[in-house]
Amino acid sequence: MLDKISALIDNQLYKSESRSEIETQINSDPQLRFEYEIQLTVKNTIKSKCHRTMCPAALRAKILEGIQSQREVREPVRQDKPSFFSFMRRPVFAFPSAIAAVLVVYILVSSALTGNPDLPAFDAMAQNNFKSILEGNLKPQMLSSSPAVLADFFREKGVDYEVHLPDNGKWDLVGGVVSKDGGRNLAHFVMKSKTGGLIYVFEISKKYLTDDKVLRLDSGKLAVLNTGNCYTKFVDDYCLMVTKTNDNYIAIATNCDPTEIKSYFCSIK
């Protein structure tokens, strides 16, 4: 009977329940009447005292901008890019069994600079490399699922900053690559999700963007990062994220659900 009181007040009784019957019961029983008064009082109090907090204008603008950028990239990319699922069907992407250790990142990155007076964009490089992985043109130099082994590999290859290699059991490391740009050694690594998705991470020292100017990131994205947020862009079947830690910038491209990945990388200090 008590549950019916709420339903009566909210006008949500079942068709089989008679309003007048319930009202009669309430009016003839002091305990039920008391329950009814409580429910009604609280409902009215909430109604009169709890006002909806409006979405801040800045957030609204940011969301609409994010949606707009998703929309802009949707159609053109979809036309000429194989889907994630078609990529997954290709045997070349059985990473754990892949033995080939050809450094293609180096060639890709270097060729991107050739004849181009502008610095390569950090996030665009991440996107290109991820696409190359999907297309089978990019394989790890070092295949290992051990964070310690990959950390050693990066050090040995001249990466002179700390690389944040996850060791949380959510994703399996596949391997790493070191590329060279402007005389600096840059770390890339690849992980697999438990569902078979791919996570590509490109991590560089902050000074390569700010001081040494080896790479660039446009001011809009920097502004997003400087407010403490992650820059996120959905491109067809994958998601690109850029974040910064105290010392590094990290670009992540993935065809997995980005929620947990974002949560992990965007909370690194």
Binding site: L2, D3, K4, I5, S6, A7, D10, Q12, E35, I38, Q39, T41, V42, K43, I46
Partner: peptide, 12 residues
């Protein structure tokens, strides 16, 4: 129904 009823009682 029951959660709402109890929730309002707690609020009260």
């Amino acid at each position: 129904r029951s959660r709402l009823h109890r929730a309002r009682k707690m609020l009260f």
